[in-house]
Each structure stands twice: as C-alpha cells, then as structure tokens.
Design a protein around this nucleic acid. Structure first.
Length: 203
DNA sequence: CTAAAGATGTCCT
DNA sequence: GGACATCTTTAGA
C-alpha cells in the first residue's frame, strides 16, 4: 500500500503544546493524525477523519457548560489527556482535552480509518465490513477497546493509547458542519471531517 | 436504500 | 425523573 493515505510509521506522540490551544484549532489539527492503541503484542492504528470541538461556558452543547462536575473534571485539567465518558446506557466516547489548565475543552474523536490491526478490530466489533468498524464515536471506542478505564490517561507519552503524527499524508480538504446528536449549540459549525473520506460517520 | 424505535446506565436537577 | 456528544435491528419502499 505505498503512497496510500493510510501508510504511516510514526510512533512519536503529539506534544502537549499541540493540545494547549483553542479547541476548534485542535479539532481541525487532529484530522489526518493517527490514533494508536497498544494491547500487549497487538497494535491498532486508525487515521482520524472526523472530530468535534466542545468548549466550556460559551458552549451549551458541552458537558462543561454547567461548570466543573465529577464527570467532566478532566476537561478542566491538563491538555493532552483522554476524556472518556459513558452514554446512552451502553456506549463510550473518546475525547482529548484541550486549552490551558483551568479552561474546559475537549475534542470528540468521531471516526477513523482503520490502518493496522483490522482483524482485531473486526473481532471486537463483530462486523465484517471494514467501513462499519470505526465510522462513529461509539464504534471507534469499541474497535479500539477504549473504556472509562482510560479516562484521564496522558496521551503525550508512548503507552497503551496515544496520538501520533502521520508521516505520509496526502493533501485533504476539511469540511465543517454543526455537531451531531446535540440539542443546543447547533449554531456552531464545530464538526470537522476530511472531505470525501468514506469512513466519516453519517454522510 | 430510508425511517422508526428499542436497548440501557449514568449524570445532574 | 428527564435527558443523553449512539448503534442496531426491523420494517417497508
């Protein structure tokens, strides 16, 4: 698969400074980066193709809109950590924290393009179709075995879960829409995805 | 293919 | 008690 969008060998985590910025900027910046999951001898990799920005007081769609609570506290903490929550009684969602300490912010990773460990993802998902493996926030966490056990996990060191730069990435265009599955804050176009990528959720 | 509805646990008022 | 940053299955065109 030389030259393909999916090829990447980097295992260097993105630095803290990448995350310590305005959440919208981080959300756009994460497109094309590589989500890496290490489970013993198995390594899973996925190219991030869709993400949403959630901020704090100025964002009625955010968990942090109501202020600091036990669930959302990691959104207020150090940038570059995983914020994982459980929703709809059966699903997990993976976010990465943004903005300086004390300021709430997180980016929801909504979809990825499987790059490595596809067979392992198939087993976890119980699905044959590659396109259905990671084309949605809860599908992605299931394929990557992400649960609240990883809530607060630091993503800036090589470990069981981190995000790396992509070595060989073809140019792409970013498209934006309002965020999915929310009632408030629909005016903000804070959902970003790689235009034309088949692994983007919805359509 | 689209649309509708059910499953199910946790958070927060 | 209501809402929920979702997915799957089923029914129908």
């Amino acid at each position: 698969m030389p030259g393909s969008l999916a090829s990447s060998a980097s295992s260097i985590p993105l630095p803290r400074s990448f995350y310590e910025r305005h959440t919208v900027r981080v959300a756009k910046g994460l497109l094309g980066k590589v989500l890496v999951r290490r489970l013993g001898a198995t390594e899973l990799r996925g190219l991030i193709v869709e993400a949403e920005a959630y901020r704090g007081q100025d964002d009625p769609a955010s968990h942090a809109y109501v202020g600091r609570t036990e669930r959302n506290q990691v959104m207020f903490g150090q940038p570059g950590h995983a914020y994982v929550y459980f929703t709809y009684g059966m699903h997990y969602c993976l976010n990465v924290t943004t903005e300086p300490i004390g300021q709430a912010g997180a980016v929801l990773i909504r979809a990825a393009q499987p790059v490595k460990g596809i067979e392992a993802m198939r087993k976890k998902r119980g699905s044959d179709r590659i396109r259905d493996l990671t084309n949605g926030p809860a599908k992605l966490t299931e394929a990557f075995a992400v649960t609240t056990a990883l809530n607060g996990h630091d993503l800036t060191t090589v470990s069981g879960l981190f995000i790396a730069e992509n070595d060989k990435l073809e140019p792409f265009r970013i498209e934006s829409t309002s965020r999915i599955g929310i009632r408030a804050g629909l005016d903000k176009p804070w959902r970003f995805f790689i235009k034309g990528n088949p692994f983007v959720s919805k359509k």
